[in-house]
């Protein structure tokens, strides 16, 4: 994938995902002016005219949102949105460093899996499966009370814990081969999809996908 194609794909995906979240907030009546501005900027970015300025405007509204909500509204999903916006914006602003900016995004994407897996695998509660049991037993994350019954399946949750931890810590190795990388991204997307269905983390699913083109480009650029 060429750098230009990767950039444009990232911009289009980012614009669609941010537009969706802006419409949700507008529907709820939250900070209408700010989210209306973001929706308009996303449409502008979709058309691609002066995309760098559009990304800059999106970045500024993201800063305002961080102030409005005193931090991210949707935790890691908002952080990834900000990270992608910053990297794409930096690539436009500093053309001589554009590859470095997008490589940083790709590396952070890999770290998002590896670090997340590593901190779990060194924790005995995760290794025993107890942590995931507790997620279903009493955490605020299951989308329905009915899902709490999964806590009565410790063997299944032990397997799921090791499946998640194993996939996350080996994810960096998928960079060694383009086909394996595509497979790794498919597994990762399935993992995000499961999180969206079980815990309502739909924004994570979409925004993580937005960073995938940068990883495909990065793999080709470094390893091919």
């Amino acid at each position: 994938m060429s750098f230009d194609v990767m950039m444009r794909m990232t911009e289009i995906m980012l614009a669609i995902v941010v537009l969706q979240t802006a419409v949700e907030h507008l529907w709820q009546g939250q900070s209408r002016a700010l989210f209306m501005a973001r929706a308009i900027i996303c449409l502008w970015l979709l058309f691609g005219f002066q995309a760098g300025i559009a990304v800059g405007a999106l970045w500024l509204t993201s800063i305002l949102l961080l102030h409005r909500f005193d931090g991210p509204y949707n935790g890691g999903a908002d952080k990834m949105t900000m990270l992608i916006t910053t990297c794409v914006g930096a690539a436009h602003l500093f053309p001589q460093w554009q590859e470095l900016a997008m490589a940083y995004l790709a590396v952070q994407l890999v770290l998002s899996y590896f670090v997340s897996g590593y901190v779990k695998i060194v924790n005995p509660e995760w290794r025993s499966g107890r942590a995931l049991v507790n997620v279903f037993r009493f955490s605020a994350y299951p989308v329905s009370e009915n899902l709490r019954n999964w806590a009565h399946q410790p063997r299944v949750l032990w397997l799921m814990s090791w499946g998640v931890m194993g996939f996350e810590v080996v994810f960096p190795l998928t960079l060694l081969n383009p086909v394996v990388l595509l497979g790794g991204m498919a597994v990762a997307a399935t993992f995000h999809l499961a999180n969206a269905c079980l815990f309502g983390l739909n924004r994570f699913f979409w925004i993580w996908l937005c960073a995938y083109p940068s990883l495909i480009w990065f793999q080709e650029r470094i390893f091919e």
């Binding site: 961080l66 102030h67 890691g76 670090v115 924790n123 509660e125 995931l132 009493f138 605020a140």
Partner: peptide, 26 residues
């Protein structure tokens, strides 16, 4: 200062999702 405090965790994320499952709020 506040902008920098809010921005830094997004630019240098820790990615420590579900490091441990602690007390959970209602």
């Amino acid at each position: 200062r506040k902008t920098i405090d809010l921005l830094l965790p997004a630019l240098f994320p820790s990615w420590r999702f579900f490091k441990e499952v602690g007390p959970s709020p209602r």
